[in-house]
Nucleic acid binder design. Structure first.
Lengths: 194, 194
DNA sequence: CTAGAATCGGAGAAGTCTCTCCGCTTGTTC
DNA sequence: GAACAAGCGGAGAGACTTCTCCGATTCTAG
């Protein structure tokens, strides 16, 4: 997807090494500084000229995608694995909490899931859809099991997720996202007089 | 505060009119487009040159402050009025919901309370502190009354508030902030096995 | 009606940012 | 180890920002 070199022309050895290094540094830079970090700054930290980095990743978006796609894929896989768990409520809440927990350690991931910084997964990407679908399945099962308020939609849950992550972006106290997830999970539980 | 013309030199009539108009247009522009709208764009919409707008408001921040301060003040006043309400829980949840409701109609207010766009109330401003203090008082009373989980701090509640507003920024479905507030309030309520 | 001061307008300075271009360097191949 | 394609570097183009400057305009006082 982000890779436009077919198997035909294998990268030159040094180029391959450099690409790896850029990816590595970009991952660290994005995790700590979020999506607003500039392309030039990433190149500088990696010790390359901007031109070099652009050679490997045609746009900033492509670089970000290369770095973050894997992480999001893992969330989707996690959700799929839980799709047949016995305790649907436990599966749903556990997944939700885990996503918040892991995403909150990565600024750029927060930014992207939270979508506040103007940069998003390309709508064309199936991944955004996969994520929503996986979440939806988990949610519906949990609702059928009576563990989650029935008036919540998948979109609502995504918004709630975003909300938890938004707290972390402010970077105030590390871990505030996780505490928020606890409150939010409680709120999503079924029953209790309003 | 944002007003540097003392009573000594009253504004010329046309200037006063223009200032009013800028404020009016800026209010509309900020409400619909959020904090990221450019200063030039606001001037353009108001039908003035940028220089003119800068004459009235020395920085973009000053303009934003002039527009939004009043709104936030109202929240603080609302909270103060509720400080002695009989039902502390009802007061707290009502206030929380009302803030989300009203703020969610104004993009710039969401941005500012949510603090995601890099622009904040100047730390020097007493208003940020007033807001936090008023919220804190409401919270503590509600907790004493046993209506709110005791493990929540004022900062947590602010984060939760921010989270609700963050959903609205995405502008997906109008009103998602309010629905989130409902879930979140439920989560903040005391008791219920975890 | 006519100074004279207050106000206006908008080009442009200075700072971001993303991304392009092309001469120079380096790896690979025979 | 020479030839040549592949890769590198970074100046700078172009598109934004926020904010400044000062000549042209408009209001108001006498």
């Amino acid at each position: 997807m982000g890779d436009d070199h077919s198997a035909a022309r294998p990268l030159r050895a040094d180029a391959r090494r450099n690409r790896e290094r850029v990816l590595q540094i970009a991952q660290e830079a994005l995790a700590s500084d979020g999506l607003t970090i500039s392309f030039d700054e990433i190149a500088r930290r990696a010790g390359f000229g901007v031109g070099t980095v652009y050679r490997h990743f045609p746009t900033k978006e492509a670089l970000v995608e290369a770095v973050l796609l894997g992480r999001i894929e893992r969330f989707v896989a996690d959700a799929r694995a839980l799709a047949t768990a016995e305790d649907a409520g436990r599966a749903f809440f556990g997944w939700f909490t885990r996503v918040v927990e892991q995403a909150s350690a990565n600024q750029a991931l927060c930014d992207m899931l939270e979508s506040g910084s103007g940069m998003t997964l390309r709508p064309g990407s199936t991944l955004a859809g996969d994520f929503a679908a996986a979440l939806g399945r988990l949610l519906v099962r949990a609702q059928r099991a009576g563990a989650v308020r029935p008036d919540l939609g998948a979109q609502d849950v995504q918004d709630l997720l975003r909300g938890c992550l938004a707290a972390e972006r402010r970077a105030r106290a590390r871990g505030s996202a996780v505490r928020m997830a606890d409150v939010v999970c409680d709120g999503m539980r079924a029953a209790k007089a309003s």
